[in-house]
């Protein structure tokens, strides 16, 4: 009984997988590092060449593997290294959000953030923000309703 109480009191530390574009947001993470900006350690970044390579099934995979949230980040609209691929990211993101909503996954667990190579501070801030949001949501309880 006491163990259970202790478990409830222990703050929940979410794990978030982040997909970044090689040209903007991964470099934003580099510049956040260079500027020694401290931000929440909960995000684990995976480098893609472009946010256009980001495939919605990566999100499902991450959730299935135990992630509590997924961050997708790329160049600002209009600034894509590959001209216009991040517009496709926006469309896929919107579509995915609808799918996730129908699966009962809360809105705040997936987030699309634009960060140019110069915007380490913005990326760090967005990460902090998202971690707080997902922390408030609690652990992803996918399939919990079915007693799995």
């Amino acid at each position: 009984m006491l163990d259970k109480v202790a478990e409830q009191v222990k703050p929940f530390d979410p794990v978030i997988v982040g997909f970044t574009c090689n040209w903007c947001s991964y470099r934003a993470a580099d510049s956040a590092g260079m500027a020694r900006i401290k931000y929440a350690p909960n995000v684990r970044l995976i480098r893609l060449m472009c946010s256009g390579r980001w495939d919605p099934q990566f999100v499902l995979k991450a959730f299935a593997e135990g992630a509590d949230g997924v961050l997708i980040s790329g160049c600002h609209p209009g600034d894509c290294h590959y001209l216009e691929q991040n517009y496709k990211t926006i469309r896929r993101y919107e579509l995915l959000k609808q799918t996730l909503a129908s699966l009962g996954i809360e809105d705040g667990r997936v987030k699309l953030v634009w960060a140019s190579a110069a915007e380490g501070a913005i990326l760090a801030e967005e990460i902090d923000h998202m971690v707080a949001e997902v922390r408030a949501l609690g652990p992803l309880n996918w399939g919990g309703n079915h007693g799995a």
Partner: peptide, 20 residues
């Protein structure tokens, strides 16, 4: 297939980083 960024590579990396 996207060489050097294949689905298998990215999926494996997702599994990897989530190894809590």
């Amino acid at each position: 297939r996207g060489t050097h960024f294949t689905d298998e590579q990215i999926m494996a990396q997702i599994e990897g980083v989530l190894l809590r």
